[in-house]
Nucleic acid binder design. Structure first.
Length: 801
RNA sequence: GCCGCUGUGGUGAAGUUGGUAAACACGCAGCACUCAAAAUGCUGUGGGUGCGACCCCUUGUCGGUUCGACUCCGACCAGCGGCACCA
């Protein structure tokens, strides 16, 4: 019977964490001659809930990659910092009466201690914090570059307003049309906001996805979000029997080939033209009433109304009218407009199904060839004119007994009833009609995007102040760069004001400032930035976190963001970036935008920030539901570390399931990983390793198969199967213990080291007496004695034959 | 509605240039150790009949290609995620 050692994980783990830190083993070196590798996790928001096992999972995965890369001879940068501005902290501060800065400081302290207990090989010397004035000075500075380039501007924008809290809410704070805090239904309010012109980069944000290595899922999500669509814009002249104006209505369509089928034009309720022509509208009262109601309608209501009406089932092959919902509208009576192609008179309407911020907020209605238009026409008895015929082998639209359409025919085909254009196919017709319009200067090619400019203002306290001064004489003036940072004043009242303004508006001393241009009395901008600001460029700061003269030295950026050897098409950037899918159309898109802007300004050397993106998934509670305090199913990583040690937590989180799929926590399954680690520990403590390599071919073969498996699995982020391979191998080792020699024992430790760093380092060092060490590179000086350490992480990653 | 993903034992899951389905782990059952329990070790464990070798069935459903399909093709069903009146 072999002796059962107690596995003193607490002692071992603390010991090595301390030694690694003191020797600076994981600190990255600028301009090292080794090839660089920049590995990044999305820096955490230090919430009051503390670290989640989900954080631990993704950070461990990238830690494994980082440690392996170091063993492969790379100069690895694996940094950490804090994304600490934002609402959860502000809300907590208001609730508990503790200043957000204090809350943040405390939370960071807790997070830091938790992260350190996991044995993650972060380079702590490069720690950044978005709420540190030394950091947000540069967030503000970058904002000013946007401002100077004309990409930051102010505009009246509808925001979400909570009538109960009397506060403006960000979209993230509105859950299904209701206020996140009090549950009241939100309304829209027009407020002057700072905007960033992300739409200017829409094409490049799509185009450049071709050069980066992101999962297709992320690429398509970004492409769909940006929503590029090519079409034609054209103008309808307003006319009526008694009166003619210079007003025109611009509409956007992707199907200008159906132009001869237009029977109405519908404007969004917010369309500015309506009030301009109100004296010509004979039913103005009715129209005004409709517009008012539409404005009060919350997003929730609009969404509800657009839900498909439930149809009686069983009508197989019947018209699929369930695609569209109820549409309402009011005709602007007394106004007639003309189809520019044939001067046919059509009616003008207002309807809240028309999106105000897209395509000019107006739509031409072609009932025969668009299902939404068909529904609208049916409801209000608009004429339906067919102008597209399906080509022979296509099935046409469903028809009633008299040949009337029962649904729209949306496919392309051949034009009929279309004047000179009759007989053309849709593709040709689109080109020719667009040209025809362009020649007469009443239309032309147009590209539209679903992407809107980024609303960059928040009326909250806990964010970076926008570095702008309002002067009655000079208007909007940038804070001079020498005066940065504009520090967030330490105020007592950071509660919302109730007026819709930021709490900073109450801060009289801070507000009053001389205009930098004329020296007259000015007033500071009181809006702060959204919490996406600081995270849009933090990966740049890690390359040079203490720089006082610029956000990062260009040479350092060049070194750390250089195209790595395996990077596709020589694109530079962070080599591996891991994060959540939920940031695909927010953080990930925002930071790509900022980076491209900085590239255009000549401030960064490459035009996309991340070469390769990986995404993790959620760690769910035992019930398969999301972990939450209210469900009481939250697993605290501290408890796991205390009970089993960090290495057990690490390998369990890797073994749970595929890295990019959601996984369910199991308190039972973790026991298996605990057994595995104890088995390894005991085996190495008890076994007499002989030093006769190659004595057994079978073990050697298995070892090399294992090296290959682990190396390849790590390249493919397949941590779960790597873990299975370790266990399979070790089961064999235990069965054939006498054949397991020193050489193979060392190789096994090297392979498990990235996964179980503390255990591997401990066992490695205890094998030292039998191993031949060359030079010792790190010298740790303690009070008692000098310890010469050559860490297992300075060993070479095994190569397979 | 559109886009994307997923579907394999009691559970988490392996396995895809098409070649012994269920590796690895959890759980469960039996045995050993123990006065007993825990821990540990050994054995078994997809389903069905059987003491047993064996035999039959099995990767959401139906069909196709193939000597051979979890894997490829088509249709459908269910679940998850994102977008959603974008003209």
């Amino acid at each position: 019977m072999t002796k059962q050692h107690k596995y003193p994980f607490g002692k071992i783990e603390k010991k090595w964490q301390k030694i690694w830190e003191k020797t600076g083993l994981f600190e990255a070196e600028d301009f090292s001659s080794k090839p660089k590798q920049y590995i990044l996790i999305e820096f955490p928001y230090p919430s009051g809930d503390g670290l989640h096992v989900g954080h631990a999972r993704s950070y461990t995965a990238l830690d494994i990659i980082s440690r392996k890369k170091r063993m492969e001879g790379y100069n690895v940068l694996y940094p950490i910092g804090w994304d600490a501005f934002g609402l959860p902290t502000e809300n907590y501060a208001i609730k508990k009466g503790i200043h957000p800065a204090k809350v943040t400081e405390r939370n960071i302290k807790i997070f830091k201690q938790q992260l350190k207990s996991l044995g993650l090989s972060f380079d702590w010397s490069r720690e950044v914090n978005t709420t540190d004035p030394k950091y947000y000075k540069w967030t503000q500075w970058i904002f000013l570059q946007f401002f100077k380039a004309g990409l930051a501007y102010q505009a009246e924008m509808p925001i979400n307003w909570c009538p109960s809290c009397k506060i403006g809410l960000a979209n993230e704070e509105v859950i299904q049309g209701k206020c996140e805090r009090c549950g009241a239904e939100t309304e829209k309010r027009q407020i002057k906001q700072w905007m960033l012109r992300i739409t200017k980069y829409a094409d490049r944000l799509i185009e450049d996805l071709n050069h980066v290595d992101y999962p297709d899922k992320i690429k398509t999500q970004q492409i769909n979000w940006i929503g590029r669509s090519e079409g034609t814009n054209l103008k309808f002249q307003i006319q009526s029997a008694s009166w003619r104006t210079k007003f025109q209505i611009s509409v956007f369509t992707t199907r200008v080939d159906t132009i001869f089928g237009v029977t109405a034009v519908v404007l969004a309720p917010e369309h500015s033209l309506i009030s301009n022509i109100k004296y010509q509208i004979s039913n103005w009262n009715e129209v005004e009433d409709y517009i008012k109601k539409a404005k009060v309608k919350s997003d929730l209501e609009r969404a509800m109304l657009s839900e498909a009406p439930t149809l009686a089932r069983g009508e197989i092959g019947g018209p699929t009218a369930s695609r569209v919902g109820q549409k309402t509208g009011v005709e602007l009576k007394g106004i007639k407009i003309a189809n520019p192609l044939n001067n046919q008179e059509v009616s003008l309407w207002v309807g809240d199904y028309v999106v105000a911020t897209y395509g000019g907020g107006s739509v031409m209605v072609v009932p025969a060839h668009d299902q939404r238009d068909f529904d609208f026409a049916q409801k209000y008895n608009l004429p339906i004119i067919e102008v597209i015929k399906s080509v022979s082998n296509h099935r046409g639209a469903e028809r009633g007994p008299n040949g009337e359409l029962l649904e729209a025919f949306e496919e392309k085909g051949v034009l009929i009833n279309s004047g000179d254009f009759t007989g053309l196919n849709s593709e040709e017709a689109i080109k020719k009609i667009t040209n025809w319009l362009a020649e007469r200067k009443i239309g032309g090619l147009q590209i539209n995007y679903k992407l809107r400019d980024w609303i960059f203002s928040r009326q909250h306290y806990w964010g970076e102040p926008i570095p702008i001064i309002h002067c009655p004489k000079c208007g909007v003036v940038a804070v001079p760069e020498n005066d940065l940072p504009v520090e967030l004043p330490y105020v007592k009242k950071y509660q919302p004001t109730g007026t819709g303004e930021s709490p900073l508006a109450q801060c009289e001393d801070w507000l009053k400032v001389k205009c930098p241009k004329c020296g007259g009395p000015g007033r500071r901008e009181t809006d702060t930035m959204p919490n996406w600001a600081g995270s849009s460029w933090y990966y740049l700061r890690y390359t040079d976190p203490r720089n006082k003269h610029c956000f990062a030295d260009f040479k350092k950026l060049e070194y750390w963001l250089a195209p790595a050897r395996q990077s596709p098409k020589g694109v530079g950037g962070v080599d591996i970036y891991n994060g959540g899918m939920e940031h695909t159309t927010l953080h990930l898109l925002y930071s790509r935008f900022w980076h491209k802007f900085l590239y255009d300004q000549g401030l960064v050397p490459f035009d996309d920030p991340y070469t390769r993106r990986h995404s993790h998934c959620m760690v769910l509670g035992e019930s398969g539901e999301k972990m939450s305090k209210s469900r009481g199913n939250v697993v605290n990583p501290d408890e796991i570390v205390e009970k089993y040690g960090a290495d057990v937590l690490r390998i369990y989180e890797m073994f749970m399931g595929p890295f990019d799929q959601p996984v369910i926590w199991s308190a039972k399954a973790i026991e298996g990983m605990n057994r595995f680690i104890i088995r390894i520990y005991n085996f190495y403590k008890n076994h007499k390793f002989h030093n006769e390599a190659d004595i057994d071919k079978e073990v050697k073969t298995k070892t090399h198969q294992l090296i290959k498996k682990i190396t390849e699995d790590l390249d493919g982020f397949k941590f779960n199967t790597a873990m299975a391979a370790f266990m399979e191998y070790f089961n064999f080792v235990e069965d054939e213990a006498e054949k397991f020699d020193l050489e193979n024992a060392k190789t096994f430790l090297a392979l498990i080291a990235p996964f179980m760093p503390h255990l591997a380092e401990e066992l490695w060092q205890s094998l030292r007496s039998t191993a031949n060490y060359e030079s010792n590179t790190n010298i740790l000086i303690t009070k008692r004695k000098k310890i010469k350490i050559r860490s297992i992480f300075e060993e070479k990653w095994p190569a397979y034959d």
